[in-house]
Design a protein around this nucleic acid. Structure first.
Lengths: 346, 346
DNA sequence: ATCGTTGATTTCAACGTGGCAATACCTTCC
DNA sequence: GGAAGGTATTGCCACGTTGAAATCAACGAT
């Protein structure tokens, strides 16, 4: 039993050649209204759908782009993935999502296209990926990097100004009179530049305010989950002199820290002010709601796809990679300023 | 410039036929060790990668399955999607994620395969999809339904026992001595059976305990977001006699309700106990942590893919659809039992 | 020496589509 | 009536792969 009909079947039914059916489907050449009608009828009757495999084989494009992120269950990446999928649909692209799980090997495999070439392009939010990986592989594959900078302009990049954003976040805490400010989220074990940039912004703000950095108040984490944030906060509270504010490099870390602050009986923000980074939805409904750096995620999605489209449709290999900076803003909520002074979410 | 080499190129280089190269790549026929080595060298030198479009065209399979969910930024679906993607990778399948956004038209389009046949199968968590949609379309496409039941066994289904789970959740509140228990999450505007089933379990538990249902304490929502939960809670608190407990049909609703309870100055769980449904990670780190019904998500993912694999590899069209019930358990946390009595998350 | 058997490799064809160039048809104009 | 200029349609082929069947080489048994 044929499960699906081809151009040939439709052609036979409509009494025309397969090529004419193809023309009707694609609108590529002039077809008389009469013929078009007859063909369309045949298409409807047979329920014909174009075979994308054949089309891809012929055209050399699949209409599929890849999105590689460390983990889908992380709210920030889930929100971003949602926006990217929507934006891709607007361009009639389909998105394949790959979770690299922070596994360098998985990221490398994606770039080299192991297991076959399916994707016309790749948007990747690197985690363990290093400069070397990008340069090592001879990629004909257009790549857009999210967050992480690529060395020597090997690929387009879309990101917020992490240093400036972290500086602002820390500055906000300083402006509230806090002087004992800790940071949670460094990742010295990864060649991940993002954490390092946020740490740099944090230090810069402290330096400008004349506040001396304090050893032990820059907490490293293995991952960016809530549990890591909770653990880091516990360590801070157990480590002698406790801070009166925390800048967490992600909202998840911040929410974990907030949780632990509650558990230890601290009042937030009175005893402990907390700022996060990412503006995930959870932070708007935590108690208290989370002050955070909000990157314009919709714009990240739109710009990343624009870059990719440019590379795919006009492979100007020689043109240097662009480096787009996406705007962000600091959203002040109850975790730094008492609830009465901030509006209730939505 | 050739961006990629084909079987033919490798064959020429290794001095064998294209078919032999194919055999080496797939391990499908016997190839002498000597030939295999020579071919492998040629593959490595040329950086050959199989062309999946051609392979699909020839084999009639794409190795791609679809996952259709209402929205990716919803934590429950994001977590589930993550597990499904992992599980699919174990079976060397690639997953395409489609967000239907609760749009009935989008769901229907997916089932009919508008825009071409890419997917070998589809896992769909229907939202606005009705019985009619499933029966209306002549689908050669293997489909597995998540949550929603399909009429007349049109497709396999994987879900928890919603009635029993809701009964348990409500029973837990009753066992704590609560008698003024409201429900949040009905969706009368959708032909969505899930909400109705949870409502039924809720009512059954009340009935068995001899507690009379109270009009106005079954709150409908338009969506399952935190903001809907917050709004519903506000309505409950504004509506005269306030309940002393709430069963929310999703964790997001519950977290929104929790947020509003805090805003209104209620103590949770003393003044207001809250139970959710889904066991998303956020609930483990809210303040207080959320008591919830925890479906075995890993098993949902594994079973759904098993079903799909069965249908794809042995299209036993005549075999009636299976209806798999996935285990769940009630996880008791601080939102119903004071924190001192429950362990801290992780 | 011949035949049969087994294993290794090749040849041929086809999957469904779209680019290219050729062809059939229809007007229009001299 | 015939050439010129469109417009509409068609046939042929290639994209890269794999199933089916044919070919070839080697070896043991007769």
């Amino acid at each position: 039993m044929r499960v699906s009909s081809s151009l040939k079947d439709v052609a036979a039914r409509a009494g025309v050649s397969a090529r004419t059916v193809s023309n009707v489907v694609n609108g590529s050449a002039r077809v008389s209204a009469q013929t078009r009608l007859r063909v369309q009828e045949a298409i409807d009757e047979l329920g014909y759908r174009p075979n994308l495999a054949a089309r891809s084989l012929r055209a050399g494009r699949t209409g599929i782009i890849g999105l590689a992120i460390p983990e889908l269950h992380s709210p920030y990446f889930a929100e971003l993935a949602g926006l990217l999928v929507d934006e891709a649909r607007r361009r009639s692209w389909t998105v394949i999502i790959d979770q690299t799980g922070g596994d360098a090997e998985a990221e490398r495999r994606l770039l080299t296209g192991d297991g076959g070439r399916v994707m016309d392009g790749l948007i990747i939010s690197p985690w363990a990926l290093t400069a070397r990986d990008l340069t090592a592989t001879a990629r004909p594959l257009p790549v857009v990097l999210l967050g992480e900078r690529s060395p020597q302009g090997m690929a387009d990049r879309v990101a917020v100004d992490n240093v400036a954003a972290a500086d602002e976040a820390t500055g906000h805490l300083l402006s509230l009179g806090r002087r004992r400010i800790a940071a949670i989220g460094l990742q010295p074990h990864l060649e991940n530049g993002t954490a390092e940039q946020r740490a740099e912004g944090y230090r810069r703000a402290l330096r400008r305010a004349g506040v001396a950095p304090r050893t032990g108040w820059e907490r490293s984490v293995t991952a960016l989950h809530r549990s890591d944030g909770a653990r880091a906060m516990a360590e801070l509270l157990d480590g002698g002199a406790a801070p009166d504010a925390v800048f967490a490099f992600s909202d998840e870390l911040a929410l974990g820290a907030l949780h632990m602050a509650h558990v230890r009986g601290l009042r937030v923000p009175e005893d402990m002010a907390i700022v996060g980074f990412d503006d995930i939805e959870d932070g708007r409904f935590s108690h208290p709601a989370l002050t955070t750096v909000s990157p314009d995620k919709r714009q990240i999605a739109a710009r990343a796809l624009q870059c990719l489209a440019d590379r795919i449709y006009s492979p100007r290999n020689e043109v240097p990679a662009s480096d787009l900076t996406i705007p962000h803003r600091l959203v002040v909520r109850g975790s730094t300023v008492p609830a009465a002074e901030t509006p209730v979410a939505r």
